[in-house]
Design a protein around this nucleic acid. Structure first.
Lengths: 357, 357
DNA sequence: TTGTAAGCGTTATCAC
DNA sequence: GTGATAACGCTTACAA
């Protein structure tokens, strides 16, 4: 039996038999030697140039590699070739199911292309965003999918200068040259408003987290305001952190107790807002449907609460995949300055009892 | 102004001025030159040996690095030193909120230690598990947190031989030497059964995904069976993939229509089961509470459905952090064979209307 | 088709 | 304290 299978082998410099510590992974050199070939050939075998080798050599390399359990060291290949095979992703809030769903799409697209994904969660903290961006840069990621809440322009620009393709999810940021993938927020809000109006709701309360930084929140809010004006609806807006439960309850309570006579509905700007609103409505004893409720983002449980909550579903997987596609396109394009583009997806309405009176 | 700030600089071999392509990241050499120091000193500055440098030299290096926006290339340092600063995590189902919560704990613990996390989702696919394990190995991760569904023993053993510390989340696997972190399933089930019995439910249906591979499912199922016997409860078990909606509905329907007279309750082995059960109960028109429902894993929406769903909450963040702590302990321990341990956490009961008759 | 040799950016090992 | 210099494991001109 071959000694190497027992974890013993000849050392480099002399012919003596020495114990090989088990944590020594086999390298390309070892494979080359056992296959009676050169490093180059082994390298070629493993980097898509398999065809260029004679069938015989291919066989020997394959056999040796299999026997030794060889796997190229990504750290090393990332170093020389500049190919880290690594895509980075910055996620503002990993506990948000929407983010996870998009990430799932990103991940699949990466896998199909033989890329690995390194995900950094920032918990909505701009400081962590900067830190993680620098980190991803230090691993020389070949592309970056970004869902940030702050404006880490400096760090992003550094990445761009370094030649890293960037794709922004939803939130478009300052001046950085990058493509933006996300929902068609204007059409989504039109869809929501049309639905609510059709269902007879005349007074609306729009619930959102503060839109200051994040551009999709801005876009949605703007369109809401335009939309109610265009439709002769009455609208109010509450944009406070969802953590402020009291403020939220008071706002909703006041809204429901208002002087008007038209049926009232809540429009929630995202999944977290829908969750908070549902809680508040329950505590206020409101009946869903009588009080309308429509949320952007479809969640597992929306069908289960009361008569079901009407939502606007985003094509999350598709958004994730599209992000990676953009990245790849940019990478192919190379230095030729491709102008930034915008890829927009359409939301689809899932009508349930919460908007049926 | 310094030319290098304009993206121009002297080339290595001659004194001519050449344009520097923007995608050339500054290396340690550049910093060393601008600081009037050697690579070694710069390296020391950035790898915790800062103290050994004279204050003067420290200042020069800091200044040069800052000016150039230098960051050590992790690929390179991972190569030479064997320190990738990378922790890998294998997640069976990234869309499961429980997994994400644990991952969040892992992530925080890593960050506090200056480690990066590389997460691989396997979508419950054993083939992907193998593939991703090999992948993580190829990035030379310094530790691995594993939440797998299959038994990729071969791949894991390879990692172990390579000297990579391993921690298994919940599922204990075959022969591999690794610590296991997770819930104290026996006590959790006792807690659940005691609660249900106290609330007067006498006939139970246990809902779980097939337990074949995953050891926590086995552990929970076994304890359920022991527990009902010990308590003189009547119990049934349904262990089919949750995707089989019809089978599930029929099982629940049959259970509810059974001959017995005691109040009936469903006990769900995890969050997914709770979701599926809730759906089924709604479609069957059962009233929560009258029909008991208790789920393992606390989810956002459990408080919102009907009278609220009683759950057993796991300390997810703590579990994640504990996993990383184990990893670090193992790494410190180094070669001296620390025996595998088991770290168990206690679930806590959140009582709601679904177990109040 | 195959091999040789020069890096990639860092850390480790010695000298000074 | 500080600095040459040799690895680390791989890719890639450039030869043969």
């Amino acid at each position: 039996m071959d000694r190497s299978q027992l974890g013993w082998e000849r050392s480099h410099d002399n012919g003596a038999i020495m114990p090989r510590p088990p944590h020594q992974r086999t390298t390309i050199i070892e494979v080359a030697r056992q296959a009676g070939a050169s490093k180059t050939s082994v390298s070629r075998y493993f980097s898509g140039e398999r065809e260029r080798l004679s069938p015989d050599l291919q066989g020997r390399v394959a056999e040796a590699a299999r026997r030794l359990g060889y796997r190229p060291n990504r750290m090393a290949s990332g170093l020389k070739g500049g190919r880290s095979r690594l895509i980075g992703m910055l996620v503002a809030d990993i506990r948000n199911p929407f983010s996870v769903a998009v990430m799932h799409g990103v991940e699949q697209a990466c896998r199909e292309r033989g890329l690995s994904l390194m995900v950094c969660n920032t918990d909505n903290d701009p400081a962590q965003e900067r830190e993680h961006l620098a980190l991803l840069a230090s691993y020389r990621v070949e592309g970056l999918v970004i869902n940030a809440v702050g404006s880490p322009d400096r760090e992003l620009q550094a990445l761009v200068d370094q030649g890293t393709p960037l794709v922004l999810l939803e939130r478009e940021l300052g001046e950085v040259e990058a493509e933006v993938v996300g929902l068609d927020n204007a059409r989504a809000l039109d869809l929501a408003l049309d639905h609510l109006q059709t269902r007879g709701y005349g007074e609306l309360l729009y619930l959102s987290e503060p839109p200051e930084q994040a551009s999709p929140r801005q876009a949605r809010l703007m369109r809401f305001l335009q939309g109610i004006a265009a439709r002769d609806l009455v609208g109010e807006v509450h944009c406070r952190p969802l953590g402020e439960r009291e403020a939220l309850h008071r706002a909703i309570g006041d809204f429901l107790a208002g002087p008007g006579t038209a049926p009232r509905a809540l429009l929630c700007a995202n999944g977290n807002a829908t969750l908070a609103a549902t809680r508040a409505l329950q505590e206020l004893g409101a009946r869903l449907g009588e009080t309308g409720l429509l949320g952007i983002d479809e969640l597992d449980w929306c069908a289960l609460v009361g008569p079901g909550i009407t939502t606007l579903a985003q094509p999350t997987e598709a958004i994730g995949r599209a992000a990676v596609e953009c990245l790849m396109r940019r990478r192919e394009a190379g230095e030729c300055t491709t102008p930034s583009r915008r890829v927009q997806f359409q939301a689809s309405l899932i009508s349930r009892g919460s908007t049926r009176r």
